[in-house]
Design a protein around this nucleic acid. Sequence first.
DNA 1: TTAGGCCTGCAC
DNA 2: GTGCAGGCCTAA
Length: 278
Amino acid sequence: MPELPEVEEVRRTLIAAVRDEIIDGVTVLRPDYVRHGRKTIRNLKGSGIIDITRLGKRLFWQLTPSACMVTHLGMTGRITLRPDDKPAEPHTHLVLGLKTGKFLHFSDARRFGGVWLYAAESQALQAHVTGRLGADALNLAVTDLDGWKQKRVPLKAELLSQKTVAGLGNIYVDEALWMARLHPLRRVDQLPHAARALLTHCIHEVLHASLAMGGTTLRDYRDANANAGRFAQSLNVYGRAGQPCRRCGTTLRKFLIAQRTTVICPKCQRAGRHRTEK
DNA sequence: TTAGGCCTGCAC
DNA sequence: GTGCAGGCCTAA
């Protein structure tokens, strides 16, 4: 399940391969996978790929002239570079041919991801981001969390929402909270500054550690060169319910928060006095 | 704020 | 065969 480190790894492997490439052909195999700009996506023929940036789990493809393609991998999305346009994977929804003879394949079994095409600097593109995505988790500053003082929301729900911190999913939220010894049901408005600073630090830590190993592959994730990530073996809580905490040996416990499986160490991550009442 | 829907593959 | 996994959006 691609979260920030996996998307960043895809971005890095992609940009190294396709910067300054020209799109020479557009094959839409599944029109409804293009969530915005379905009618104009074929006009990308002739467009150049200037850059690929990232905010949270989304990639922003800066294209000439004056277009921006947003991609989200959802749960099972892959963007892979192949030598031909023959769909190599099931559920290939979009293929972009490049002038140098390479092909970008967009596949996504569950179709939780998608592709959005906008005019560059358009209001629609702005709206795609505004109100939805907060600060990128990799560049998070403590001050980005100032708005939490007025928010009566459980920590985990807030982190998953992307609204303040963009890029974390179920895996890295659980990992960062364990590292910071914070209970996922703590209310964000009850976190003192020191806890917000610690959390910011731990988010950086876990993301950098994962990036250094090419991300986490549980099953589906691959980078643009079809390589899996190796961080799964370093996970401390995610998927380890019933196993001992690597810090204190206490048995890790699993429960649901906001419909998400959550794993914590009940000893390291105390609920505290300010737990969200449930 | 929460539940449901999207969607497929895989474990049971 | 059933149910679960999950990001994110919409509706109640």
